[in-house]
Design a protein around this nucleic acid. Structure first.
Length: 576
DNA sequence: CTTACCTTC
DNA sequence: TCTAGAAGGTAAG
């Protein structure tokens, strides 16, 4: 069946031998924290081990199996996994840490525990109908993530340091402006001190009693963004604080944060496979998936009565640059969750939008439910449409929607109504999903990923409603996550078995970022687009989408400056 | 509305 | 002095 492997139980020299065997063997190994093992192997044995070899290896990890059975608990240690999934009683003494001079009997005992645990998890996955998802997707993700983590992306460290200093001086300047506006010195980053100044010294809330200002949990005046936006006409201070917060966030999280994660001029983040309930990946140190998409504009010199001098743009993504002779290629699934909604709800109007593969979906959508022609849709309408879709589908209330759109609550609820009336099958899909969850206690994605929602049976109205929204959200977000993972697997397997030198650098949920040699760019771009769009039909997983998938490609000299890439003569999945 | 991670207090 | 959790911000749909 499978051989057993337990990484902490062996020393480096025999590890090497075993790793080499793993790569050559068609057998499947079992390892606790398999991704970490593969990543460190790649680092230490890079002479004998190529990343393409690692991509081809088969290794099981009980942690991932356990997460698939219940994505809500991310049990991380071996002991917890045993007590949760191993039916035979495990006393605390039976799992021994192997330190110093290892006792062979202990090693063997730990290995056999690991083996039996995996056997049991294997059975559980099969009875739950999750084995296909495990072996077809999650297990294959392990080497892919290990290889991603082993890749070092080049960062322009000097430019990074410069912007850090620039932002630092801008912050000092804003701090002084804030002190001046407040008439005293105070800690600008402290919401407590700000509250004292705004509401006890300046008593700004008394100047706008007609508006209701947001309160904190402890029924104090809030200093949140929405509160400050309402106050900014009354006093110069709120606006200064807003700018300070924005720049401070950018400096600490995205500039200094990245600098602290760097070794020399390179960086790579850690990809977590089991930290989300939806099946998505997450990244940390740094969080690649949260770097600002749009650059931040700041003025370097002081404001002089309306005149703004020396605008500078800060863009963390632009600091990530390919090696000499290489370029970035980004492949993006267009409106993937909306397409999945069209498929799952089978709404005729929504389906029609996606039959036209060239048109912009959100523009068409805006035109369709507003009942006007497409050329009369402004960019603002398009953005509205986009935000309405996601918030309405996922169950936003009219208050929430109005705050997102910046319109009145009445207007927001009118938008909701027209949307749900135009796409009649969408509300019925939502209802069916909720009913299914009530009946079975769980919901499933298109590839069989499941999430159980115990609160769906709660007597508490708000808990139950939240579970209902989570159910609907999971079906779409989880299915999109399935597709993204499948895309990574299919592309990586083709790369491994061909002469491509391309490395997968990052996954940003619906977008894959590659570093590609210039000489291979066009050919590889075609491969990526074809592979991703072909996921409309996946035979062995029973996926048969009634909407085409559309992938847009972009390329450029930094992650922050990608431009659309048009392939000259490709046949997409739908044309011809 | 949902899913994450990061930072400050 | 230390730390857990709230609050607020970023991203992705």
């Amino acid at each position: 069946m499978f051989s057993v492997f337990y990484c902490v139980s062996v020393c480096l020299c025999i590890l090497r031998e075993m790793i080499m065997q793993m790569m050559c063997d068609t057998k499947t190994f079992v390892c606790f924290k398999a991704k970490e093992l593969l990543r460190t192997s790649l680092k230490h044995f890079s002479k004998d081990l190529s990343w393409k070899q690692v991509l081809g290896c088969h290794v099981m990890d009980p942690q991932i199996a356990a997460w698939l059975l219940d994505p809500a608990d991310s049990a991380s240690c071996f002991q917890t996994l045993l007590s949760k999934h191993y039916s035979h009683s495990v006393t605390s003494t039976s799992l021994q840490p192997v330190l110093g001079q290892a006792k062979v009997t202990q090693v063997i005992s730990n290995l056999s525990l690991l083996y039996n645990l995996m056997v049991e998890l294997h059975n559980k996955l099969q009875t739950q109908g999750l084995w296909q998802l495990y072996s077809g997707i999650e297990q294959k993700m392990i080497p892919i993530l290990a290889v991603m983590e082993s890749y070092k992306m080049h960062v322009d460290k000097e430019a990074m340091k410069n912007t850090s200093e620039l932002l630092g001086s801008k912050l000092k300047q804003l701090e002084q402006e804030a002190h001046q506006a407040a008439g005293q010195k105070f800690l600008v980053s402290s919401s407590a001190q700000l509250r004292l100044i705004l509401f006890e010294k300046l008593r700004l809330h008394e100047l706008c009693e007609n508006k209701k200002l947001p309160k904190t949990i402890k029924k104090q005046q809030s200093t949140s963004e929405t509160a400050l936006l309402q106050l900014q006409k009354l006093h110069p201070l709120p606006k200064i604080i807003l700018e300070y917060r924005q720049i401070h966030k950018n400096k600490t999280a995205f500039v200094d944060g990245i600098l602290s994660c760097m070794s020399k001029t390179f960086i790579s983040s850690t990809w977590n496979q089991t930290s989300t309930v939806s099946g998505r990946l997450s990244a940390k140190h740094p969080n690649f998936q949260a770097l600002p998409k749009q650059p931040l504009q700041i003025s370097k010199e002081q404001y002089i009565k309306g005149k703004i001098s020396d605008m500078v743009t800060v863009h963390p993504r632009a600091m990530f640059i390919p090696r000499e002779g290489w370029t970035f290629l980004s492949a993006d699934f267009c409106q993937v969750e909306l397409r999945l909604l069209a498929h799952l709800s089978a709404d005729p109007q929504l389906l029609r939008i996606f039959q036209n593969t060239e048109a912009d979906a959100f523009t068409m959508l805006a035109a369709q439910w507003k009942g006007v022609s497409e050329d009369r849709i402004s960019l603002e309408d398009r953005e509205h449409a986009k935000r309405i879709v996601y918030s309405v589908v996922y169950g936003a209330g009219r208050e929430r929607l109005s705050s997102i759109l910046g319109v009145s609550a009445e207007e927001a609820s009118r938008f909701q109504d027209t949307f749900l009336q135009t796409y009649r099958e969408v509300p019925s899909f939502i209802q069916h999903t909720i009913q299914h969850c009530h009946k079975h206690g769980f919901v499933k994605s298109i590839m069989g990923r499941r999430r159980s929602l115990p609160h769906i049976h709660s007597a508490d109205w708000s808990l139950r409603n939240q579970a209902e929204r989570q159910a609907v959200n999971f079906v779409l977000q989880g299915s999109a996550a399935d597709l993204a993972k499948m895309a990574m697997i299919k592309i990586c397997s083709q790369v491994a078995s061909a002469s491509y030198t391309t490395r997968l650098v990052a996954q940003i949920h619906d977008e894959l970022l590659f570093e590609v040699e210039f000489s291979q760019l066009k050919q590889f771009a075609v491969l990526v687009k074809k592979t991703m769009e072909s996921l409309q039909h996946i035979e062995n997983l029973g996926v048969n989408l009634s909407v085409p998938l559309k992938v847009s490609l972009s390329t450029g000299p930094s992650w922050g400056s990608l431009c659309d890439m048009n392939l000259p003569c490709t046949t997409t999945a739908t044309s011809l």
